[in-house]
Amino acid sequence: MTIERSNPEGLHATPGYHHVTRVQADTLVYLAGQCPLRPTGELAEGGLEGQTAQVITNIRTALEAAGATPEHVVRTVIYVASPDREDLSAVWTQLNASPLGPAFTTASTLLGVAQLGFPGQLVEVDVTAAL
């Protein structure tokens, strides 16, 4: 399996992610959008920071179950239920500073959205990995 990440000339500089991720792999792993739900099914407490921490835990658990690590991630889409760019930036910073950080050096998209699937849910992350 090979993963090549690049930022082609002619595209803007990025805050850590790559514009292009080229993958040659035997297996692709698609995670369902990981929500800030604890194993009990309850929404994580602690607002945006607490929910983001739970999403990080959930992604790490799901990747491990698939035999993958953050370095195997080839695409992420981050959804934040907020129109405030400071909230989006805070989630991006927390994700990158976590043990999951290498997952966000690949092709990534960060979106502010009107709402997510569960009442009170503030963040969700969609992840694709290659093995």
Score class of each variant (00 low, 15 high):
T2M: 09
I3M: 07
E4Q: 05
P8R: 01
E9K: 00
G10I: 02
A13R: 07
A13T: 11
A13K: 10
Y17L: 11
H19K: 11
Q24H: 09
A25R: 07
A25M: 09
Y30R: 15
Q34S: 13
Q34P: 00
C35L: 13
P36H: 13
L37Q: 11
T40G: 04
G41R: 09
E42F: 01
L43K: 05
L43M: 09
L48Y: 04
E49M: 10
E49L: 13
T52C: 13
A53Q: 12
V55Q: 05
I56W: 11
I56Q: 08
R60C: 06
A62I: 11
L63A: 05
G67A: 11
T69A: 11
P70V: 12
R75G: 02
V77A: 15
P83S: 12
D84G: 00
R85M: 08
S89H: 14
W92M: 15
T93S: 14
Q94I: 00
N96S: 12
A97R: 15
S98F: 01
P99D: 06
L100M: 06
L100R: 05
A103P: 03
T105P: 00
A107Y: 05
T109F: 11
L110N: 06
V113L: 02
V113E: 03
L116E: 03
F118G: 00
P119G: 03
L122P: 01
V123G: 08
D126N: 11
